[in-house]
């Protein structure tokens, strides 16, 4: 197009666009080193430590998926436990069919994406608060359906088969590595997704849906994609939870508590930042460990922290951190006209 050429030629001369700053590259190296140390832990520490860390990795993965959905896609769901549950049950069912449970984790993710597609037709008819409540209802419906299936253990749940042949220490280490890989994959996945053209469209949709459509964005498709990715991520997390607990119980795996955790973590960590779920999960995990002996006071304190964070820190803890992002997804324009 002539106008486009006319305009671009004028601008291209003295402008360049930067994506990643030097400090961001440094932080990537630090993160990679941290991941390497974490990967070596099963050789260095007792399995009680690594077993606890599995919990942290699952929380990071779940919170990242919720942040992607709500913080970048603008889809505030209270029903992602639907996919945690479906993922967990898929793993159990696949193991029953003879699939190696560790290899069944990605298949559980895929199964969730398949379930998420028709579910989205229903959920996307609702907006805002109604979407939130609707997703919760959908999760409950999935729980009620699962409970009706006798081969899945009904209301009492089912234990995971196919791992009895593996030594307990090795099993713990394998589960740990898979949980670590899941946490890293969700963070890297969010980063790569958001850094691309699709990520920019998503953020535009989140900020202004009508204007996004006028910008040429297929709003429905963008939302659907982020919904499917989030479902798959939560499904994989559900699979890892089951690998770790070796059984699945419908009431706990489909519990709305998972959504409460995800929201809490993302809100205190910083919604709309890739770093948010990471920081939030670390804090939540620390609180869990520190306050575990305080019984119901643990929940009270957690509630207080959540309320204070929501009131005082609308952008979460990461919102307080000045300086460049660890995961730069934006564009920085540098102009070199005038005396440099």
């Amino acid at each position: 197009m002539t106008i486009s050429h006319l305009l671009s030629a004028r601008a291209a001369r003295n402008v360049h666009v930067v994506r990643a700053t030097r400090s961001a590259k440094l932080s990537a190296v630090v993160l990679a080193a941290a991941a390497a140390v974490l990967a070596a832990l099963p050789f260095l520490v007792f399995s009680t430590v690594t077993d606890t860390l599995i919990n942290l990795f699952v929380l990071i993965a779940l919170a990242s998926m919720w942040n992607l959905l709500a913080g970048f896609g603008g889809l505030v769901s209270v029903g992602q436990q639907a996919y945690i549950g479906i993922g967990a049950y898929s793993l159990v069912a696949l193991a029953d069919l003879g699939v190696q449970p560790y290899l069944a984790v990605p298949l559980a993710a895929l199964t969730c994406a398949v379930f998420a597609l028709p579910t989205s037709w229903l959920a996307f008819r609702l907006r805002g608060d109604y979407f939130a409540v609707g997703t919760w209802v959908i999760a409950e419906v999935y729980r009620l359906l699962v409970v009706r299936v006798d081969s899945l253990g009904g209301a009492s749940g089912k234990s995971l088969s196919g791992l009895s042949g593996i030594d307990a220490t090795l099993r713990g280490a394998l589960t740990y590595w898979i949980a670590l890989a899941l946490a890293l994959a969700t963070i890297a996945g969010c980063y790569l997704l958001l850094r691309g053209r699709l990520g920019l469209s998503l953020m535009a949709v989140r900020d202004e849906e009508t204007a996004a459509a006028s910008a040429g964005i297929d709003v429905r498709r963008a939302k659907l994609l982020v919904y499917l990715v989030s479902a798959a991520g939560c499904g994989a997390a559900g699979g890892v939870i089951t690998l770790s607990s070796l059984s699945v119980n419908p009431d706990s795996i489909f519990s709305v508590q998972w959504s409460a955790y995800m929201i809490f973590i993302v809100v205190i960590g910083g919604i709309g930042f890739i770093e948010g779920p990471l920081i939030g999960a670390l804090i939540f995990f620390a609180l869990q460990q520190l306050l575990a002996d305080f019984g119901s006071w643990y929940l009270v304190l957690l509630g207080v922290v959540g309320i204070v964070a929501a009131l005082r820190l609308p952008r979460g803890l990461w919102g307080l951190v000045p300086g460049p992002s660890l995961f730069p997804i934006g564009y920085l324009v540098r102009r070199s006209d005038g005396p440099a």
């Binding site: 535009a204 900020d207 202004e208 910008a215 964005i217 934006g330 564009y331």
Partner: peptide
């Protein structure tokens, strides 16, 4: 109806 959290450049880039 700007995309409030995006920069001016990103608004046009999208």
């Amino acid at each position: 109806r700007p995309f409030g959290h995006l920069t001016v450049f990103e608004n046009v880039l999208v």
